[in-house]
């Protein structure tokens, strides 16, 4: 079956959805992504949906699920590039994807994730400094 490729970029994963997905493809993506987050220890997941002409409640639920599972695995999901018509339709449908972060494009999405990575790294350095002191 056709699968959606997942690219690793630094500590983030990038998924570009370019085809009109049928439901099994969406389910497969959810599974593949969960596995990849665990394997790579990725801290961020970018899902680029700028090519998608529609997002119905099934795909909406997939995005929600991915965000929830990623959060449990300590990765942040950012959905990027949603088209205006798609956004208006989702709101009308009653789906607001409350648990999902959004950004205008991949670049902005990366900025969001980089900011989070910077926070995580700061914490690591502080802990390292403390270890040094206790070692003295």
């Amino acid at each position: 079956m056709e699968r959606i490729p997942i690219l690793k970029m630094g500590r983030a994963l990038l998924i570009t959805i370019q085809v009109d997905m049928h439901d099994q493809m969406a389910i497969a993506l959810e599974e593949d992504l969960t596995t990849r987050i665990a394997q790579t220890g990725a801290k961020g997941v970018l899902i680029d949906i700028s090519s998608l002409e529609i997002v119905d409640s099934f795909i909406g639920r997939m995005l929600d699920n991915i965000a929830a599972v990623s959060r449990v695995l300590d990765a942040e999901t950012v959905v990027v590039g949603m088209r205006p018509a798609v956004a208006i339709t989702l709101v009308e449908l009653g789906l607001t994807l409350q648990g999902v972060k959004t950004a205008l494009n991949v670049e902005r999405g990366f900025e969001l994730i980089s900011r989070r990575l910077a926070e995580i790294e700061t914490v690591v350095v502080e802990i390292g400094a403390e270890d040094e002191r206790s070692g003295d």
Binding site: V79, V80, G81, M82, R83, P84, V86, A87, I88, L90, V91, E92, T96, L97, T102, A103, L104, N105, R108, G109
Partner: peptide
Amino acid sequence: LKTVAAARLMGA
């Protein structure tokens, strides 16, 4: 309100 919600979905 819907516009505000739609803009958020787009990342603004």
